[in-house]
Write a protein that binds this DNA or RNA. Structure first.
Lengths: 173, 173
DNA sequence: CAAGTTAGTGATTCATCAATTACTTCTCTA
DNA sequence: TAGAGAAGTAATTGATGAATCACTAACTTG
């Protein structure tokens, strides 16, 4: 079976999905590869045919989660009118938080992990999201786009916390 | 030695300080009580004379970190003029981030920990900080104080991330 | 159909860790 | 100065977990 066959690609994606769930629910360091395997309905050692280590699996899971946000924002940017750009971006992020909470929870965990490969992936993700939002605001002719971008990201981060701690009052206006 | 003697109180505080450092640097779940003990220059089992479990130690560390923020904000509230209230609060928080980064890093970790006692401590901390800021904004006659409070907290959360990931550009205006 | 390749697992290894136990050493003070 | 309590540790325990190894079964292709 080569890289081009879809079987192994699906298996890999299944393992990543299971890992996102288990890591988010239990915490990356506390979660065991056996738990991930159980969720993916495979044996524990089989994970290591696809990922060289538990950390490599986390990295793959983070990539998926950042791609989710970035693709979603890009899509908004392409289709949204200038006047409703920001509200469309907010809506897009709310939908991600609703449908893929685990991926955001995993990102939040990864914010404080010190391993270099993880930190770099997180920096890359944040930087790319910031770039997209800033360019979109500028294209839309929004004044003070840098500050508006910062505030957009800031509200997003508080929204994460409000969601995972189940404290809706934190976002009240 | 009773509870009123300062020796044991100091030891307890020393252990908490060591735990804040080690948990922040290494991650709560990955850090070992032996590492905390080494940092505190005591033996590993001695920790359990003061804390019934590793989790109880984390809880104590979180209490310290929230008290730091709350006391600091209360002090600002008492002494600050209305016009500079928000900038004084920002300055106070910046100083905490500068001098006690590890405590903030620990709070960030705890945001995603699912244990009930930890979640409750985090909710309590956030709720109390929000209360203080909101009351202060209202007292100062700031309009839209609820939204302003939300934005203040939001910027704080982004500032945390910007600091721990060493990405100053995230806070650029 | 034979021989290679892919998919997958059970058992094991080696290291690590939270927590307990049982012990020693130090410090007052009656 | 005896001895009671406080401060502290070494050694152990019992469990757990990432990663490896050795193996089997099922496909596929010349």
């Amino acid at each position: 079976m080569g890289k081009s066959d879809t079987t192994s690609v699906n298996r890999k994606a299944e393992i990543i999905s299971a890992a996102i769930e288990v890591f988010a629910e239990i915490g990356y360091y506390r979660a065991t590869t056996a738990q991930v395997a159980q969720r993916a309905k495979i044996s524990q050692p089989y994970i290591f045919r696809f990922f060289s280590s538990k950390e490599a699996l986390l990295l793959a899971a983070l990539e998926v989660s950042w791609t989710r946000v970035i693709d979603s924002f890009r899509k908004v940017m392409e289709s949204s009118l200038s006047e409703q750009l920001e509200s469309d971006l907010i809506r897009a992020y709310d939908e991600i938080l609703d449908s893929y909470q685990n991926e955001i929870l995993l990102q939040m965990q990864a914010q404080t992990i010190q391993e270099n490969s993880i930190r770099e992936e997180m920096r890359k993700g944040f930087e790319e999201v910031r770039r997209i939002v800033l360019d979109a605001f500028r294209d839309a002719g929004i004044p003070n786009s840098k500050e508006r971008t910062m505030l957009f990201l800031a509200r997003g981060m508080l929204c994460n916390i409000s969601t995972v701690l189940d404290m809706p009052e934190l976002m009240e206006k």
